[in-house]
Design a binder for these strands. Sequence first.
DNA 1: CCGCTTCGTCGAAACGCTTCGACGAAGTTC
DNA 2: GAACTTCGTCGAAGCGTTTCGACGAAGCGG
Lengths: 346, 346
Amino acid sequence: MATMHDVARLAQVSVSTVSYVLTGTRPISQATRNKVLAAMAQLDYQPNAMARGLASRRSRILGLLMPMDERGLGATETAFVTGAAAAASVAGYHLVLSPVGGGNLDDLRRLASQRMLDGVVLMEVQLADERVTVLQEAGVPLVLIGRTGDTSTLSYVDIDFDQTVREAVAHLVGLGHRRIVYVNHSAATLASGYGPALRTRDAFTAAMTGHGLEPVMIAAEDSAAGGRAALAAAFAQAPELTAVLAMNETAIFGILGELTGRGLSVPDDVSVVSMVTSPQVAELATPALTAMTSPGSALGRIAIEALTRHLDGPADLRHQQLLPCALEIRGSTAAPRSRQPMGADQ
Amino acid sequence: MATMHDVARLAQVSVSTVSYVLTGTRPISQATRNKVLAAMAQLDYQPNAMARGLASRRSRILGLLMPMDERGLGATETAFVTGAAAAASVAGYHLVLSPVGGGNLDDLRRLASQRMLDGVVLMEVQLADERVTVLQEAGVPLVLIGRTGDTSTLSYVDIDFDQTVREAVAHLVGLGHRRIVYVNHSAATLASGYGPALRTRDAFTAAMTGHGLEPVMIAAEDSAAGGRAALAAAFAQAPELTAVLAMNETAIFGILGELTGRGLSVPDDVSVVSMVTSPQVAELATPALTAMTSPGSALGRIAIEALTRHLDGPADLRHQQLLPCALEIRGSTAAPRSRQPMGADQ
DNA sequence: CCGCTTCGTCGAAACGCTTCGACGAAGTTC
DNA sequence: GAACTTCGTCGAAGCGTTTCGACGAAGCGG
């Protein structure tokens, strides 16, 4: 493995000159630069990342911290990752994903204090998230995908849940629906302070009230069974419902199964809209789901761009931005068949 | 940020003594060790990863290289990751995931040559995979999840597709099914030399022939639409089919949708078995799918263990191991309705 | 009690790079 | 043309570790 010394010797310049060619921190004449580049090519030289990091005190590695539970990464989260990776590459950084769960804060502390990451993007943030505190204490530059409760001092990119819910509700109301049930994440998830669940809940209430309608929300476990149970609960609370808005990507398949099981057809009897969903998942269902498509890779890209700007630029300005999901109409929504076809439908 | 010097000064020992306490490379008296540990705690000392890596020429970072396409990571792949991360942590390594696609070989070459990764686990290996060549040339220790065509010189862990298919077919045949169609990945995927697709194809042919039955295989695009098309093709080729074995986790939802659309019920009219599937995904369908459950986290764990053994141990023995998927019977398989109402229980 | 290991510790030399100060050689300014 | 800058390059001092050789102090067999 060739070192800078070897390159310098071959090019007949000093080591520092080679370094300047590489980093561009000082002007180098074209002639010298060419000699150096030729030597590098000839030796197949690759700078040693560790030495570089030690001397410059920057690793040029960015971390994308995501809790990996057994549920797996949906296409939505994957889009964050690919967007972020592309942006990091453009900015001249490596992106590494670290599967730090919520449990191992010590692991996180260690990772942060070892000065191996120049900056970090944190995914799946809770309203009160200790990981944020740990990272801030360790002095690691930080951008969130999602938001904590108090966002005043932090940079973040997040989905504009308020507008997303408003658009989804408007779509259904526009079709003529009046009884709309919102299937959210589980009660436990809500209690744990998961931002998207809480924000969409409030947004749904506001949107429905704004249309003069009564908001009905059901919390569903993240599983097909949870979805089935949620639909049963929904019919119990609102027997004449004609539309379901679902945040819970996992439960939605249970919802659809249960609907079919009850002999109800989508979208003729009940319309279904899936929130914050990727086209791939929406197409999985039959009929394909009308969905609010998450701005996936844009979120990842913007987060990384904010982070690198912070690292490379002098000013440490905060970046706070919300992106709405786009309504994509597929086969799961239609005008309600009829107001009251045959009385009470238990 | 405290350095080793600070610790040494506070504990009134030399820097090297602190290092020996940390690494355990030389014996240190209990008294000295305690002084040093106390000083470290007091200063909240964390070793600098870069300096460590430079001096020791080992980063203690392992890479898990996975191509991230827009399809996202299923629960299966996520299980690899969590299993691998846990094993790495136990062995005292950090695990980072690098979303290197198939395209950017240069990126990979750079990553490998920068001596930032002590070793690498490569996922989603093709039969002929250039990434393997690149990494081998760079001299990076390597373990595969999956196999290349020529495995003679490599370490790998993979699913035992042969046995998995054999068990799945045996399950269906045992129920009395005779006309079984295998829905594989797409023709393009097959042509590209994707090991699992090719190996299961051959295993299916062998298993069916072994039972004296005719193997029918359909290639399906990785999408719900692909699944629907595949089912149509299947009925065209084998009108009297009673069972479907599907490798394609994405297409399977299309298959189920199309089955329902044709007025066929699962499992009464047609049984469905999903290959290499996680319980989470199997539960998503209605009815829940009988599936060959992939040994997810075990694969990741074993790969990392083989890698660390190679790195820490002196001998560089190859590790080659196959793990079968376990049959988990759920609601999507039953005896065929018409063929043999009762009896034929071979 | 004399040589021998073994134990515990130290000082110093790497590791491969960045970065700072210095310094001729040119180019500018008045 | 004296006094400044600016340009292009060099040498050397780090960056925070690990690791090697050395060296007293014990411990021990004979």
